[in-house]
Design a protein around this nucleic acid. Structure first.
Lengths: 115, 115
DNA sequence: TTCGTTGTTCGTCGAATATCGAACAAGCTA
DNA sequence: TAGCTTGTTCGATATTCGACGAACAACGAA
């Protein structure tokens, strides 16, 4: 388990963020996190293998879209909503609204029973 | 010269648009077209080879971000601003604002003399 | 018809991406 | 300590992407 590489707020770059949000699975993950709550990875459900999910979460993290916190052997992820709003006002809001309207990433969700 | 493949407004998909806008050159092209004017390809200046520019313009076209009109042997390109605003309200505006602030795609511009 | 202009397509290259299963490492827990 | 859980990393593929030069096609002009 390697330490996560979180870019500083000012280092979050637009093309990387756009690229991170160009995949339906990753868009779905962002939608799940859109309410601001922190989620354990175990609570995330996506139609891909475990290693692939890990990869997608890493892309989001490296782009500065999410922040991962480690607690013992498990990880919690959260949307960097404030940082993103600071750097790119209105962007995440527009992407989330569009994704909701189109159902992009509907295959991604929470495990049954997660609040 | 093959006919351009423009997706209908309702077929413009979020992930494709995000992907199209994840490259600095393409973001720069969109910034150049942001004023709504139609530009001849010859008026566009970008730090890439002609064939690469053609490729980027095709990616934007296929994603539904721009519309290309052919007139004789030359082409004119324009941002599909209204269509994009209809499908994804606020998205282009946010991207343009962020790109302006960060100077993303500054290497792209108009040929000297273009209005 | 023969050029010249203009944009597309082709072939190619290296790099990046998406995906998987399997192996691994770090903490809990029994 | 031995096992279990959890997430990462490692290959291995297959695909796509960005880039280039060169060849090609369409059209207007000489």
């Amino acid at each position: 388990m390697r330490r996560a590489n979180h870019p500083a707020t000012e280092d979050v770059a637009l093309p990387e963020v756009m690229g991170a949000l160009s995949d339906p699975v990753r868009i779905g993950l962002v939608r799940v996190l859109a309410d601001g709550s922190e989620r354990g990875w175990g609570a995330l459900r996506a139609p891909v293998a475990k290693s692939t999910l890990s990869h997608h979460l890493r892309v989001l993290r490296d782009a500065g879209v999410t922040r991962t916190r480690q607690e013992g052997t498990r990880c919690f992820v959260r949307l960097r909503r404030e940082d993103l709003d600071t750097r790119f006002p209105g962007l995440i809001e527009a992407v989330l609204a569009a994704a909701d309207a189109d159902g992009v990433g509907n295959g991604v969700g929470l495990m049954p029973g997660a609040t």
